[in-house]
Simulated assay, not measured.
Amino acid sequence: MKRRITGATLFGLGILCVLLAGALAWIIVPSQRKVPLDLIPPDVVLEASNATFAQVQLGPDGAPQLTVENAGLRATTGIKPDFEAAADLTGDLEGNTVIWNVFNATDRADTGAAVNRSESRIALDRESGEAVTWPGQCHNEAPQDPSQNTACTPGNVDFEGQLYLFPFGTQKQTYLYWDSALHEALPMEYQAEEEYNGLPTYRFEQQIPQQIINLEPQELSALLGFLTPGSTTGSVTYQATRTIWVEPETGAIVGYRELQHRELVPVVGTPVVIFDADLGYNQATLDVVGEKAADGRSQLRLLGTYVPIGLVVLGLLLAVLGYLIARRGRRPYYQAPARTAEPETTRAQA
């Protein structure tokens, strides 16, 4: 009797292990492939060793002056999640969206003097990493004259596509990636599998051909007035190439390079390069994003692959062992042999 109970228990535990493996692989882990609501991303720093850029500085009389400089650049992006705003979301956004306040600061590498400032508020889908429609989204570029600052006005931009994250389980396909200069999402094409920063990654590339970008009239007038005196009309052309390395399990961007070129083109006169730089993650950024991506990848693979496989193997062993023990615990059933009828004796007749 005890053998049968032990065998049945082991068999039940084996089935339970198999069911738990299936739940981990197909229900629990997939449901956790989302950006944590309490995630605080690390600061990301892009550097260019030798760049050309327009910079506003105060002259001897205290008035702002715009000049073209050559020096190293350091661009820092900091992200501060807005937990309260995310908690107030309703409808399809509730529980599926994070709200991030993003601050960008570009400075000279040699003196630390400010070159550009911008801020954004953006809503991102926790699973795909894409920007989602939200009335509070906004973007503000600091104007060339730092004394004329404007606020980040809700609804002044419609973010779309990928910005700071790719989907969990990134695929070998083309994604739309946001371009801040053009204020639209453009194709980012898959190129190849590569090992980058010690991780298996997918490399994507975005090519933006030369084109005119829209500037506020006062900003364009300031550029023309300072850099091409005598010309009152013109345009700014822009072109860029971005290369991104993505760890596909987590969708983390573990490598980034951007080549950007802008020129002020007056109707009369010679074009002036106002920005030209080859920007990429510095070593500190490579280290921190690589470590976080590796940890996330290991955790997802452990819970989504290795643990379920181990549970299935253990479950099958327990089930087989339980069946064998229960089978041996059965008492053999013996059936008494049928008694053969003895022939009746008859008296011998005299």
Rank of each mutant, 00 (worst) to 15 (best):
139 H>P: 00
306 Y>R: 07
123 A>Y: 06
159 F>I: 14
19 L>A: 13
350 A>K: 10
5 I>G: 04
130 E>T: 13
160 E>W: 05
325 I>T: 08
137 Q>W: 07
236 V>W: 02
215 L>N: 05
208 I>F: 02
28 I>L: 11
53 F>W: 04
75 A>G: 01
161 G>I: 01
1 M>A: 14
125 D>R: 06
78 G>M: 12
307 V>H: 08
142 A>C: 09
214 N>V: 11
226 F>M: 03
114 A>Q: 11
130 E>G: 05
316 L>K: 00
328 R>S: 12
274 I>S: 10
123 A>P: 07
35 V>T: 15
227 L>Q: 13
273 V>E: 11
77 T>F: 13
93 L>R: 02
257 R>G: 14
298 S>E: 15
346 T>C: 00
214 N>H: 12
168 F>N: 07
54 A>S: 13
241 T>Y: 02
323 Y>K: 07
303 L>D: 01
254 V>C: 06
198 G>H: 05
302 L>Y: 11
105 A>W: 01
276 D>Y: 03
231 S>R: 02
85 A>N: 09
175 Y>G: 07
143 P>C: 00
78 G>Q: 12
306 Y>N: 08
1 M>P: 13
301 R>W: 04
265 V>K: 15
42 P>S: 15
303 L>G: 04
287 D>C: 05
226 F>C: 05
225 G>N: 10
148 Q>M: 13
239 Q>A: 06
30 P>R: 05
324 L>T: 10
264 L>I: 09
56 V>S: 15
18 V>R: 02
325 I>H: 11
85 A>H: 09
292 K>E: 11
171 Q>K: 15
23 A>R: 04
54 A>G: 14
159 F>L: 14
40 I>W: 08
180 S>W: 12
37 L>A: 15
233 T>S: 12
307 V>N: 10
242 R>A: 08
332 P>N: 12
300 L>V: 10
62 G>N: 09
269 G>S: 03
53 F>T: 05
132 V>K: 04
55 Q>M: 09
239 Q>M: 07
98 V>R: 03
171 Q>I: 09
64 P>E: 11
147 S>C: 03
66 L>K: 09
147 S>F: 11
184 E>A: 11
186 L>D: 08
172 K>F: 02
175 Y>M: 06
259 L>V: 14
316 L>E: 00
284 A>H: 06
180 S>P: 06
340 T>A: 08
137 Q>E: 14
15 I>K: 01
193 E>D: 14
260 Q>T: 15
326 A>S: 14
282 N>M: 02
104 N>P: 05
63 A>H: 13
135 P>K: 07
237 T>K: 01
144 Q>M: 13
259 L>P: 01
44 V>S: 12
88 D>G: 00
243 T>L: 12
175 Y>D: 03
